[in-house]
Simulated assay, not measured.
Amino acid sequence: MPRKKKPVIEYRHYSLPINFPILLLSGERWKISDIKSEHLHFHNHLEIGICHSDSGIMEIKGESVPFKAGDVTFIPRYLPHTTYSSPNEASLWSYIFFSPEELFQHSFKSAYSDFEPNLWAIKGMNCILNKEEHPKVYTLATSVVEELKQKNNFYQESAYGLLLSLYIELLRIHSRNKPLVEQETDHNLKGDFVISPVLEYITKNYMIPITINDLADLCHLSTTHFRRKFHEIMGTAPLDFLNSTRIEEACKQLKSTDASILSISERVGFQSISSFNRCFSKLMGESPKQWRKAVHSEAQSAKASILEFTGWV
């Protein structure tokens, strides 16, 4: 019997605007085919989707969950999934990407640390909220999209308030749906989910020293197996991904602050200025000093992503 073909996993990396870190993808381009993709994908930010027309299926956590017009989807970062429309349909969507931890860190009390639901506990069916049962979610989500599209006076302040209200509502719904006893633990992670703890850890701790052994231990894998599994899913080596995360944060700081290059290199986790300069030049094509000068002179347009590894979309 032929072995079942293993699905390809695509990591879609979105760099958010620095001054207002919310990304909207909307318009006629964002129609989903009725052809079922052989690829699962996941993102580096939380995704909120609004289905404007037609229907289809979202595959998530091994579940096939139907969606229809008026549904709002709520996909935590690093959660593999795919979506396809019903036969002979092409559902139209709008998507909002943001990092709750970054965006709302000053809005929540310091005691609140779980900015995103535990993706191991959340069920696939709870990632899709229909308009009839959750009219508030639908109204808030569509209002955020309209503010970001229209860009009227004070649209950023309005979009921020609406998105904060939407996110709180999503957290409340998730807390009601959360099982009393969580069956899944990191020790039970299998298949494509196995490296997610590492992605989450790097996102939150890129600024401290991290070794390949540290990362392998998070997945309860040998170093050799972890390297192979990470490269298989991400298309790059674990430490290359770590350094790319550091360089992206450095770009934000080079553009938005007057801090010295040495100070920034230390803040993002590099142990020496020479290793920072070497890694920055490799990824960005020029030195940190040249890049900062070009950005400030508006001679260089913003890159959609500095992370362009094999197999990425």
Rank of each mutant, 00 (worst) to 15 (best):
A121L: 06
A121T: 06
M125A: 15
C127Q: 08
I128Q: 07
L129A: 05
K131L: 10
K131T: 05
E132H: 10
E133F: 14
H134K: 08
P135N: 04
V137I: 04
Y138C: 06
T139F: 14
L140K: 04
A141E: 03
A141R: 00
A141K: 01
V145M: 00
L148A: 00
L148Q: 02
K149L: 05
K149T: 01
Q150V: 13
K151W: 12
N152S: 14
F154C: 12
Y155M: 02
Q156V: 03
A159K: 04
G161Y: 09
L162T: 05
L162N: 01
L162R: 04
L163A: 05
L163D: 00
S165E: 13
S165L: 09
I168P: 06
L170K: 04
L171V: 00
N177Q: 13
P179I: 04
E182Q: 12
Q183K: 11
E184V: 04
T185F: 00
T185Y: 01
T185H: 02
H187P: 01
K190H: 12
G191L: 04
G191F: 03
V194M: 10
V194H: 07
S196M: 13
P197A: 13
Y201R: 05
I202L: 07
T203L: 15
T203V: 11
N205V: 11
Y206D: 09
P209T: 07
T211Y: 06
T211H: 08
T211C: 08
I212K: 10
N213E: 15
A216K: 01
H220S: 15
L221T: 03
S222L: 09
T223G: 13
H225P: 00
R227Q: 13
R227I: 08
R228D: 15
R228C: 10
R228K: 15
K229G: 06
F230P: 03
I233Y: 11
I233A: 09
M234A: 07
G235W: 02
T236D: 09
T236L: 08
A237K: 14
P238Y: 04
L239H: 04
D240I: 15
D240R: 14
F241V: 05
L242Q: 02
L242V: 05
